[in-house]
Amino acid sequence: MTTEFSTSEIDLVETKENYECVYEKPDTLTDIRFHYCPGCGHGTAHRVLMEVISELGIQEQTIGVAPVGCSVFAYQYMNIDMQEAAHGRASAVATGIKRVLPDKYVFSYQGDGDLAAIGTGETIHTINRGENILILFINNAIYGMTGGQMSPTSLANQVTSTSPYGRDVSFCGNPLKITDLIAHIPGAYYVSRHAVNTAGNVRKLKKAIKLSFEYQKLKKGTCFIEVVSNCPSGWKLSPRDSMQWIEENLFPIYPLGDIKVPTTNI
């Protein structure tokens, strides 16, 4: 950390009292600094999720499950009771929690490798049982934590460290649109795809998460929210270019919007 940066931080603290606080970190986030790379969408997704939990006043009733992947340390940042699951097993762990604590709120937070590759079986069967949980699925089309390998949602011809000549779909298969797949399952109550690349999209995501906790309270079934996100480090792009890459390349394959919504109002 540079001296310059520290000084500006002190300035901020000194001047804080003269201002009205209009926006701050929710009490549901700890003071531990995120380890995420600059520009990564995980930080925003964490924050939005925890803002909702704070605003709904359900911090004391919520238990989260962290996956294996870049968000493996989610439990360090989220100021609620949490469990860290084995790779791919977050929704099974969430099932175990929810079944013995049916009146608590339970969510799993999982990436595309965790949820759509190694944990596909658990994902589908958790939803098929209609477990009353929220599955928050962060899809950045790459394995971030292990250093940028091809994931099940990587795009055709996408260059990764294990598809150095681009993803050959005739050899490795096409990007798996797991969200569209699971929307067909009766146990899925609310399925929606979002992003955190613009302020508008962040607001829409927040609304969707809030809705999903309301449905959970009513024990309606599984709520599944995909967040199409970025991985500047894995994609070898600057944060700004990665935002553009999301729009140009991911949105055409993973279009935003509701995929399955309840037919009756709550």
């Binding site: 499950v65 469990q83 699951a85 084995a86 097993r89 099974a92 762990v93 969430a94 099932t95 175990g96 929690i97 929810k98 079944r99 013995v100 079986g121 658990e122 069967h125």
Partner: peptide, 10 residues
């Protein structure tokens, strides 16, 4: 695999 992870959670 799922069963033992449900055990973990519960």
């Amino acid at each position: 695999v799922a069963a033992i992870n449900m055990i973990y959670g519960a």
